[in-house]
């Protein structure tokens, strides 16, 4: 499923959706990442962990093309992101969903509009937007709260709205930066369960966390970064009982985002 040192073996595997080759990232004088190499294949569920400031978010930023490597190469869905024409970045970003610790919802718009916004800006037809938003909100169990404003929802519900927004454009990759950071353990488990369901439906999920408990319980493949360096890359397939994580009620609807092709 993954190679510990892909750079040593030449071209990246065909199945890989993300590849890092000897990547350095330097902000001003500060080195955020140093010589990081790894690949992620289709359908993987990857957990990136490490202490605060270790470089977890920097890895996600590079995948999101929100930053570009100072040295080395980053490949996203077969495209060399580090040397990509910057005008092409928005289109490639449409294949990536984002979820954040602080949810980042638009406070003055209701749940429906928050999710619909992601479709609107990429030019989906109005009637299709309604169908897609209805689908993902049903899947995250929030269709009945579609007219609520974010402040009228609990933290877990807000994160589910954020996940619905991330998945409404049917991305191939879902990046989640500390998605459980602001949630209590029970809600955190619920969100991880939702991420598992998304992954089960075929979306590659990469999430960062500094919570050891979450890593121990849910980490199937765990990359540890410390001081900007990748210190371990461990696959623990079979170590996690997904069904125990995904509670029964969460199976009632299909996983978000993978039922229809929604890109215009």
């Amino acid at each position: 499923m993954f190679s510990r040192d892909p750079a040593a073996s030449g071209p990246l595997e065909e199945r890989s959706v993300i590849g890092f080759r000897h990547v350095d990232l330097v902000y001003s004088d500060q080195t955020a990442l140093a010589d990081v190499s790894f690949t992620v294949t289709n359908g993987e569920f990857l957990c990136i962990t490490g202490p605060s400031g270790a470089g977890k978010s920097s890895v996600l930023r590079l995948i999101a093309m929100d930053a570009f490597p100072t040295k080395g190469e980053v490949i996203v869905r077969g495209q060399l992101a580090s040397r990509m024409n910057r005008r092409k970045v928005p289109r490639l970003r449409r294949e990536i969903g984002f979820v954040f610790q602080d949810f980042r919802l638009l406070e003055d718009r209701d749940v429906f509009d928050n999710v619909a916004f992601a479709q609107l800006v990429v030019g989906i037809k109005s009637n299709q937007i309604t169908k897609n938003v209805m689908r993902v909100l049903t899947q995250v169990g929030l269709w009945n709260k579609r007219h609520r404003l974010p402040r009228e929802l609990s933290g877990g519900e807000q994160q589910r709205v954020a996940i619905a927004r991330a998945m409404v454009n049917s991305p191939k990759i879902l990046l989640a930066d500390e998605p459980t950071g602001n949630l209590d353990p029970e809600t955190a488990q619920e969100i991880i369960g939702l991420l598992f369901r998304i992954n089960d439906a075929g979306t590659c999920v990469i999430f960062s966390t500094h919570d050891h408990g979450i890593v121990r319980t849910f980490g199937e493949r765990v990359i540890v970064v410390r001081d900007g360096k990748l210190v371990s890359d461990e696959k623990r397939r079979g170590a996690v009982d997904r069904k125990a994580t995904i509670t029964d009620h969460m199976y009632r609807a299909p996983a978000p985002g993978r039922q229809e092709k929604v890109h215009a």
């Binding site: 928005p90 970003r93 984002f98 980042r104 990429v122 454009n169």
Partner: peptide
């Protein structure tokens, strides 16, 4: 700023 940030994240072009 928040709207712009989300627009960028979901792949809106600069022109939009």
């Amino acid at each position: 700023a928040r709207v712009i940030q989300i627009q960028k994240l979901v792949g809106a072009t600069n022109a939009f």
